[in-house]
Design a protein around this nucleic acid. Structure first.
Lengths: 137, 137
DNA sequence: ATAATGCCGACTGTATTGGTTGGGATTACT
DNA sequence: AGTAATCCCAACCAATACAGTCGGCATTAT
């Protein structure tokens, strides 16, 4: 039960993009250097974010990455989901059929609550909030 | 970012113990059968819970496991921590020195919030709540 | 043409997960 | 004393995920 480096890096990269959008795409190498992320690893992370539609890339000289949406429209939960898979920590929460005893399982109450807490926490923050650091802890 | 089976099983076992404490210890085999948990695996899970002081075992014929405290005093967070390690999903939250950029890192805000959400969700439920199923989702 | 950039598939070492196996040590009961 | 039920423990295993790396190809501004 740990957030992967992939995900930490990915969020840092997204925040960087949000904070450095000046009409030009930002090359991967710049993000990697600024955030101390191994470049080839970051490449694979950005690929996932691109597949998820969160960033778009332009190739060639002076190419790079940009957000596809305004920073204010991107919730952190979307970023985490793109990199970490569904936020549900336990299979029986989204898919009641995943476990035969789901109906009578008291523990499921816990996992449902946990699910709500996590989703709420991550979806109540946008990239814009983070660039402004105007979030109360 | 997933709860391990170890942890799901462990919580189910704890809830079972909370709901079946009739002054006698409950043998592992009973829990395993009732909750469909592979017995040898459950054994290792209960070992961890015992190390954490959450259950105690008595050996020999008609031995078994019991909670060390009243169900109302055991918060789910303790059970999860015992099996899954610290609840913090990211190293820089409990230990600010884990990452050099911690001070200036906007993402850290996210992880702090997430931490609080998770801890809050898990520590607001006790085993007794679960046996009564009196928790609102 | 060239250099900067993104795209992609294959590979690797390490750790974790989800177990199993086999043999002990304790204890209640007869 | 013997036996069966029970917990205790160390070693092992296969599959998967994690955190990267490497090498080459495709695209494009200049």
């Amino acid at each position: 039960m740990r957030i992967s480096s992939r995900c930490e890096y990915g969020l840092r990269a997204m925040v960087y993009l949000a904070g450095h959008d000046a009409g030009r795409p930002v090359p991967l190498s710049e993000i990697a250097a600024a955030e101390s992320i191994p470049a080839p690893f970051l490449e694979r992370i950005l690929a996932k974010l691109r597949e998820a539609g969160l960033v778009k890339a332009t190739r060639g000289v002076s190419g790079g990455y940009r957000l596809t949406q305004a920073a204010a429209d991107v919730h952190v939960g979307e970023v985490v989901t793109a990199l970490e898979g569904p936020l549900s920590l336990v299979g029986c929460v989204p898919d009641r059929g995943a476990c035969k005893r789901a109906e009578s399982c008291a523990s499921r109450i816990v996992w449902r609550r946990l699910d709500n807490a996590i989703t709420g926490a991550l979806n109540s923050i946008t990239l814009e909030d983070l660039t402004k650091e105007a979030v109360t802890p």
